[in-house]
Amino acid sequence: MKETMDYKNINAIIAKVLSHEATLDEIIIFGKWVNESPNHKRDIEVLSEFWDVASDAEALSTEISFDRNKDMIFGRKNDDNYKDKTGYGSRKRLVFLSIAASVLIILSLGIYTLINGLNPSQNFVLLTQDNIARYVLPDSSVVVLNKNSRLTYSDRFVANNRKVKLEGEAYFDIRKHNKKRFVVEVGNSEVEVWGTKFNVNACNATESITTTLIEGIVLFKGGGQERLMQPDQQLTYYPKQGFIKNAKVDACLSVEWKDHVSRYTSIPLSELILRIEEHYNVEIVLADKYKDMRVSGALSNNQSLHQTLNVIQSSVGFQWKKAKGKIIIY
């Protein structure tokens, strides 16, 4: 005789499947339960139709009980005034039953399939080259990608935990969601938030990963360590050495690149020149007498190299020329 499984949490699992929030293990349990009895298939067919037209989603919690709601759900099915208002009820019922019948196929393929149509997961990739770009994610969070950066996320981004993978540098303004964390995966480390504003620089992730918090709270995880960050804190993780460095900073200055502005306050001219070299991809030779001179100001990242050098020249007083593909400051 076939042994009957214990489905003590089946009501919560059914609710998750109908809400497109079930895990692979829960889908497997759901499939076994549906195939165990023709009555179960009938129950799911009716319940999925009711789910589509329920005007108050909160009434169907993940702890929904068939026994408690049976009269309401199955009684409503026979109501002459009851209609499938969405137009998708029949298709969805077929999908749910197809899931139940396809559990073994899912396992053999090693694919966590989507509820809506049994399609394999797909990734979306946002890329920048010589430009800075602003994107709005499916959860309405905003991300600004710096030049030569890449952000990847799955088409299950909203249904499951909100998770993205970053290569390069990005500024995040995350929409708050109490039940779904937002995770930025960078190399072997993670930045975990629920709703906040922060910047992650992983242009050379094998050497260092720098996270700067502007607003809210961030949990950084890397190398088996965890650090809770506060606003105006900058955390730099060095993967090879396995240690973390903390610093107090003016966080707003660290993200001015997204507005195409670079501010600098009392830094050596040699450091500013290094930034200019990186930004314009040019080699600059700076005379020794200027290297330790401290400068303050702001530069637009949209102006030409010629304009940038002239702005600095007006405050420092140096001369410059172009020779053999290099910029010579003398």
Rank of each mutant, 00 (worst) to 15 (best):
A323H: 11
E3Y: 10
A22M: 09
S315T: 06
I106M: 11
E36A: 15
R162N: 10
G87E: 05
Y171F: 15
D56I: 07
G223Q: 14
S121K: 13
M229I: 06
N116A: 02
N204E: 15
N119E: 02
K322I: 09
F66N: 10
D155F: 01
R175V: 14
N160S: 15
E271V: 13
C203D: 09
C252D: 07
Y135C: 00
S296Q: 01
I217E: 04
L126C: 02
V164N: 04
L299T: 07
L145F: 10
E226V: 11
V164A: 01
Q230H: 13
E63K: 06
E45R: 08
H177S: 13
N302A: 08
Y237G: 12
L104S: 09
Q122D: 05
E21Y: 09
T308E: 06
K147G: 01
A205T: 13
E256I: 04
V311I: 10
P120A: 07
I28G: 00
K179G: 12
N81E: 13
Y82I: 11
I111V: 12
L166G: 06
A205V: 14
S314Y: 05
A54S: 08
F157V: 06
S270D: 15
R294D: 00
K16I: 04
D288A: 13
S121H: 08
Q319A: 06
G117D: 00
K2D: 11
Y330E: 15
A15Y: 03
R175F: 10
S90T: 02
V184K: 11
M293S: 02
F124S: 07
S55E: 08
K163W: 02
Y237M: 12
E45Q: 07
K92M: 00
P239G: 13
S102M: 03
C252K: 11
N281H: 13
D288M: 08
K41V: 05
N161R: 14
F157E: 06
K70Q: 10
K258A: 09
I13F: 05
D292M: 07
S37P: 04
I214S: 08
Q241H: 14
R175N: 14
G216Y: 01
I328M: 13
V142A: 05
N301Q: 14
L151E: 00
T206W: 12
S140I: 03
W51T: 01
R156W: 07
D232V: 08
R91K: 07
H279A: 08
Y290G: 02
A170H: 01
N201S: 12
R294L: 06
V191I: 15
N81Q: 08
I27T: 09
A323V: 11
N302K: 14
E283K: 14
K92N: 04
G168D: 12
K289I: 08
P231Q: 05
K8F: 12
L137H: 00
D6V: 15
V46T: 09
Y7S: 11
T236Y: 12
R263V: 03
V53E: 00
A59Y: 02
A170K: 03
V186K: 08
I244A: 12
I44D: 07
R93Y: 02
A57V: 09
I115C: 03
T23D: 05
I267C: 10
S19L: 06
F50S: 01
I99P: 04
V316N: 03
D173F: 00
Q233G: 13
E277C: 06
D250R: 10
E45F: 02
M72T: 08
T62C: 05
W51N: 01
G187N: 15
